[in-house]
Design a protein around this nucleic acid. Structure first.
Length: 288
DNA sequence: ACAGGATCCTGGGGGC
DNA sequence: TGCCCCCAGGATCCTG
């Protein structure tokens, strides 16, 4: 069977979207803003933002964790989160609108930036300044980016908690951008069982885990992310990393390394996939 | 401090 | 063929 469930935008998918749409957005003026749907996103769009965006020029498009950050020339910042099923695309204005399109920005040069999200777990927020954006992220306690995380910070965060590795990897306050799929893939690559406790990892294992996270995320970015069902990049093009999954969605299939059957368990409230041979259970590991 | 569960939401898939 | 129910999960909140 193929991987069940939807492909949720995690760091590699968000990075792909940002890279795709950046050339079409940078330097472009926003002419008008529409809300085609009546239903609200989880964090309601403020009508004042519609007026505030009009006439603003987009200066820069980048990413912070799973957030898409659109810097505008007047210092205000549009933040977008894709939640579970969010799609952000740049299209021709005459392309018919699909269901669940919550926000449309008309751009100069006959282009539209469209934010679509069937499950409405995503959100869009306009903040007045980079300082306010900084505070927004600080308030959320958003942790460091995986690619420039300080190894000693990482080891300290692991040492300081009795939470299991799966919960730690999903916690955006510890490390930003990792979600369910890449947590499982990273733990497999590091040969660590997701139920192991942060404070039980020695220095070598902690370093190996960080390297695995970076490797998995970079490989996924190189494949334009993973597409199972909903996710598409900024051009509407699907990613291909799902074909390289080692454990996620591979329940019942043989491990790519040792042929042992991949099993699914529940940890930190999320489906979790492991190779029971490559990822030794905590109770099987000698304590010291 | 942390685990576990509920909540939000929709569409796909399995079972009958 | 169709209907019902379950399931997927990012972030957040609540309880034990």
């Amino acid at each position: 069977m193929t991987a069940r469930g939807v492909s949720v935008p995690e760091l590699p998918e968000v990075e792909t979207v940002v890279r795709d749409i950046r050339p079409s957005l940078t330097g472009k003026r926003i002419q008008t803003v529409h809300q085609p749907t009546q239903c609200q996103l989880r964090r309601p769009w403020d009508l004042q933002w519609t007026h505030a965006l009009k006439g603003k020029t987009i200066e820069r498009v980048h990413r912070r964790g799973k957030w898409i950050v659109v810097d505008l020339q007047d210092q205000s910042v549009l933040l977008l989160h894709l939640g579970m099923t969010g799609q952000l695309t740049v299209t021709a204005p005459d392309l018919p609108l699909t269901d669940h399109t919550h926000l449309v920005l008309d751009l100069e040069g006959a282009r539209q930036l469209r934010f679509r999200d069937p499950r409405r777990f995503g959100c869009a927020v306009l903040l007045p300044s980079p300082q306010a954006t900084q505070e927004f992220f600080e308030q959320a306690g958003l942790g460091p980016e995986p690619f420039n995380i300080d190894p000693s910070y990482w080891r300290e965060r692991l040492q300081a908690t009795r939470r299991c590795l799966k919960a730690i990897l999903l916690d955006q306050r510890v490390i930003a951008g990792v979600g369910n799929i890449y947590a499982d893939e990273s733990l497999f690559l590091a040969r660590l069982h997701p139920a192991r406790l942060g404070q039980d990892l020695d220095k070598r294992s902690a370093t190996r885990l960080l390297k695995a996270i970076q490797t998995v995320l970079q490989r996924a970015i190189d494949h334009r992310g993973s597409s199972i069902r909903d996710y598409v990049g900024g051009f509407g093009v699907r990613g291909s990393y799902q074909e390289a999954f080692c454990v996620y969605g591979r329940t019942g299939k043989p491990c790519r390394r040792c042929r042992t059957t991949i099993v699914r368990l529940s940890l930190a409230g999320r489906s979790t996939h492991i190779c029971p041979r490559c990822q030794m259970a905590p109770e099987a590991i000698p304590q010291h």
